[in-house]
């Protein structure tokens, strides 16, 4: 992580617990990190690890249990605003700056509205334009930015394929000229060819408009392709966070190692030592003290069950939540 400039967004000790019948579900448990302006932070983890909840808490589609999400004030000032604490009217203003693209392009669009109205919705509710004509122009402009043909403006979502629907979702999130966009699994529901088109689109939009992204995905090769830095989540906690190259070349946390080794590579003869983890992800309801990965870890020691490892910076820009991270570095990462 570069120390040069102040971060654009700082997440501090964010927690999100849900009440359930069998106890408190720790969806996001004491997570801290920051994102630089114009950067893409990848957030990976398996289902139920809390990555989507975290994304929603950051832009306050969910109310967090505790902690702060600090966003740089509007251009020119050095101050920060805590998104989790602002009033409803301030939040309405902030909504223009922080946006989200959803995973499922089939359920995130109102099936009863045509493309034109779907894209215009953010402009209408925020009363951006007084006259219809300039709004119509803006809608057309957005459609061309995301690569939707103008003739589609009267189509309904069910008439379009997943890729085009996702383009509508992206156009909606761009409508208000945001600075920061949470991309919640934006390509997971798409076929590889369409996925590549959407990834290229997101990439070129970032270059053109300087957006800051948090890219949430369970697909590691996609995350590696788009991210500058990657945070790996396991059961509500970030277990490792570092530059994407370092993370993939030399993963330190045992979970990251297992996760990376599990990716099937589309090449024949490239044998990798696969770490097959035992068992399943444990329940996030009332997790016990100690390391969350304890039960499946192949390095575990007695200390891991007593103390919860903190996310520590073991090298500049390299964060790991494992008691033995330094020893693992000394061994040169994976022992295998």
């Amino acid at each position: 992580m570069s120390e040069k400039s102040a971060p654009y967004i700082r997440v501090e000790n964010l927690k999100k617990y849900f009440h359930t019948k069998s106890g408190m579900l720790h969806a996001v448990d004491d997570v801290s990190f920051s994102v630089q302006k114009g950067e893409t932070l990848g957030l990976v983890g398996e289902s139920g690890c809390g990555k989507s909840t975290l994304g929603r808490c950051i832009i306050r589609l969910l109310e967090s249990t505790s902690g702060r999400v600090l966003i740089t004030d509007e251009k020119g000032t050095d101050g920060y605003t805590d998104i989790t604490k602002v009033s409803a009217s301030q939040m309405k203003e902030l909504r223009k700056r922080v946006q989200i693209v959803f995973q499922d392009p089939y359920s995130c669009l109102n099936p009863r509205l045509p493309v034109r109205e779907l894209i215009a919705e953010p402009l209408i509710v925020n009363r951006v334009f007084r006259d219809k004509a300039s709004m119509q122009r803006r809608v057309r402009e957005l459609m061309s930015i995301v690569g939707l043909a103008e003739r589609l403006e009267n189509s309904f979502p069910h008439e379009l394929d997943g890729g085009r629907r996702q383009r509508i979702g992206i156009a909606r999130s761009l409508a208000l000229d945001p600075e920061f966009i949470v991309l919640d699994e934006p390509v997971s529901a798409l076929d590889v060819c369409i996925q590549a088109q959407i990834l290229n689109l997101l990439n070129s939009l970032q270059k053109q408009f300087g957006y800051t992204y948090i890219f949430i995905s369970h697909n590691l090769s996609v995350v590696k392709h788009v991210s500058d830095r990657i945070a790996v989540m396991y059961l509500g906690k970030i277990v490792e966070l570092s530059d994407y190259k370092i993370l993939f070349k030399d993963p330190l946390h045992p979970y990251t190692q297992a996760l990376l080794s599990a990716i099937p590579i589309p090449k024949v003869g490239v044998r990798r030592d696969r770490i097959i983890l035992e068992g399943d992800v444990p329940s996030p309801i009332e997790p016990p003290e100690g390391c969350r990965f304890l039960g499946r870890c192949f390095y575990r020691q007695e200390r891991c069950g007593r103390e919860t490892p903190e996310l520590r910076e073991i090298e500049p820009g390299r964060f790991v939540a494992c008691h033995f991270a330094r020893e693992l570095v000394a061994q040169g990462g994976r022992t295998a």
């Binding site: 832009i59 589609l61 309405k92 909504r95 223009k96 946006q99 989200i100 959803f102 995973q103 499922d104 359920s107 995130c108 669009l109 109102n110 099936p111 009863r112 509205l113 919705e121 953010p122 509710v125 925020n126 979702g169 909606r172 999130s173 409508a175 208000l176």
Partner: peptide, 25 residues
Amino acid sequence: MEFIEAARAVGSPDIRIILKHILPN
């Protein structure tokens, strides 16, 4: 449904969500 969340994400007020998104569907 996710599109209700999507509407909230762009700042739609409750009344618009009910009239424009929930009722027609």
